[in-house]
Design a protein around this nucleic acid. Structure first.
Lengths: 209, 209, 209, 209
DNA sequence: AATGAATGAGGTTTCATTCAT
DNA sequence: AATGAATGAAACCTCATTCAT
């Protein structure tokens, strides 16, 4: 008697996630071409043939590894930006959340940057990532303007400030190489906030991290 | 009549440079594994066999493509930092020079970032690049301190400020996608300077770019 | 209430036939290696695992697809040859029957030819098919001789004539590409009969088809 | 000092021919999918990588194996048909030439039939082969008509007779399995000629073969 | 010094077959 | 009896590297 449909779906969902996690780490470590499907399979504890039961091609596996996590991130960030609080508080929580993600999921961030760097090789994926960033910059700018009206944020083109922050955010994992729980990251948040508010000192209550 | 030794060396030097330039562009565009030696040879106008007369392996070609330009850059940056002028002026010229390089040689910068991203794949090269950055941060910090003493630069740990700037510099080419002569880059310099001096307005005379 | 033994056998028999029919068509269309067991399963409306419940290997499935129909054909042809009527009439009915089969079951005929073509790949099967042809040629020859004695059939080695006819029969589906009910096939029968009887005009009553 | 262009072209031409010959035999023996490129390479005495220097894909190698010989055959046949002599003589020489080719290059003929059999798998190639046959039938028909006017050839639609002959020619290698120099082939020519001329006895002088 | 023919390791992908359920 | 997840052998194809010329 065969497995029920539900059993099968559960098995598939789990295997798929295992493979995707293994793939993300390896692609981030060695890039697309130098990561063999066999290596992914091995890391996920399956045979290489199995990988192709879940992803039709290596390219598609890569695509899923790159894109799927972006979506959950975006949802979170947008939520943080639209939560309660003064503009500066919302921005600080946003920055803190992003820094935390970048620090904790360094491997995945490297993968995203890898794609951006090889955007002529992965034009589609790069486009999606740019969209991801663009939407956040678009959401951030009016909050900056609001903060400026309240005198919480330094004057200047809000969009320019947003872009400057994103440049910093993207560059951060290249200069901060410490583990996610290292205080350097908390420290970095303080400096990043100066991009918005030069005289910045924590807008949120201590212990907010 | 055979060529003189000097002529031979000159020819060799030129061929080598042509191959290296072609390699840099292609490695930056497609990464290490997806760039074939044949493609480099073709772009440089030689046969693929010839490439191996100048570089013993593809890996060594890659190494040279990544490292050689760093050295000339470093020399220039150090010189700018140690030139005449007030701390803020020197920093601004330094920033402007780096932004100009990053904008003009986007392809090479991408290659450097590619290596940093895959640092477990290219540990040696990544190490050298970190050294390159570290030395500049080390040179920048005392100048920041000097500027703070003069009230030109906002207070805060000088090294922290230097690192923040380098994070921005590294992230910039991922968010600014305009051609090198686009005014966006000049504009970006202004925002970058706010990392050092919140109330910044150009420290150098107009036309200083 | 469990199925009776008879019901089970009937179901099995039907499933087997469905799989075999699907297999014949697909093998004829794409050859042995380019027909996957999964494709056969899909065409037969079962899962690929099920195919292996009915045929131990793909090779065995192929074997059955090729051979089983031959047997029923042979029985019919032999019967036609040994029926009532003058030699020429019997031959004409024989030819007509074979042409009808070849036209109507083009896909299966292609499969048989495929095996004959690859006889070093499928030596066993090819041998069986040659036997099938040989037995018919052997049965046909004395009838030709009989017809010659009666002046119905042109002189010449009866076996040579039989072989010539079989050459034509085998080549026919390669040059006549029309659907089974196209009059071309009827027309072709007329020309084929000339191999036996140069001055041929239908030996059977009109409507005999 | 590198080889001259001529030397290289000569080498390439020879290797190409070797590979193509090996490929034709193997494809004819085992079909497309069951012939590995490695097997072809081995038979040609080169490494499998070398095959891909001469043919971009296996499919393209197959294509060349199937088509190139057709062209030279066609030229010869057309020439024979348009040579001197009475219609029946020209037809007999044509038949004799084709039978000789079919007997001597049995392996290649099998390959052609293989493609015709799998015409949904190789639509392009099959189309070309049909064209090859069609052109010959078109050239043959008026000669048959001419022969009929002279009373050398039995009455009946010339095109129908031509098609009947081609059916026979295509089927012949499936029923005559003897080596090319076996007298059976000469014998077969006699029977084939009856398709044109029922009362046929050699139109060409003895020793004409 | 330069060329390009040749090799063969290694990678992606397919699919017959097995087997737990 | 039936399903479909899993395996791994085998195939195509690429390309760094070697080497005869």
């Amino acid at each position: 008697m065969p497995r029920t449909r539900e059993q099968n779906e559960k098995i598939r969902e789990e295997r798929r996630a295992e493979i995707l996690t293994a793939a993300t780490d390896l692609f981030a470590k060695d890039g697309f071409a130098d990561t063999s499907v066999s290596a992914v399979a091995k890391a996920a504890g399956v045979s290489h043939g199995t990988v192709f039961l879940y992803f039709p091609t290596k390219e598609e596996l890569f695509r899923s590894a790159v894109l799927e996590r972006l979506l959950s991130w975006e949802a979170r960030y947008m939520q943080v930006l639209s939560a309660d609080g003064s503009p500066l508080e919302r921005i600080e929580r946003f920055v803190r959340q992003q820094v935390r993600d970048v620090a904790a999921q360094e491997s995945y961030v490297r993968l995203v940057h890898y794609v951006l760097g090889l955007r002529s090789r992965f034009p589609d994926l790069a486009q999606q990532i740019f969209g991801f960033s663009s939407r956040q910059m678009a959401a951030l700018s009016p909050i900056i303007a609001e903060g400026q009206a309240l005198g919480q944020i330094a004057p200047g083109d809000p969009r320019g400030i947003a872009v400057t922050y994103f440049a910093w955010l993207n560059g951060a994992p290249l200069v901060y190489l410490t583990p996610p729980d290292d205080p350097t990251w908390e420290y970095a948040v303080g400096f990043a906030m100066r991009i918005f508010s030069p005289m910045y000192s924590s807008a949120t209550k201590p212990g907010g991290a």
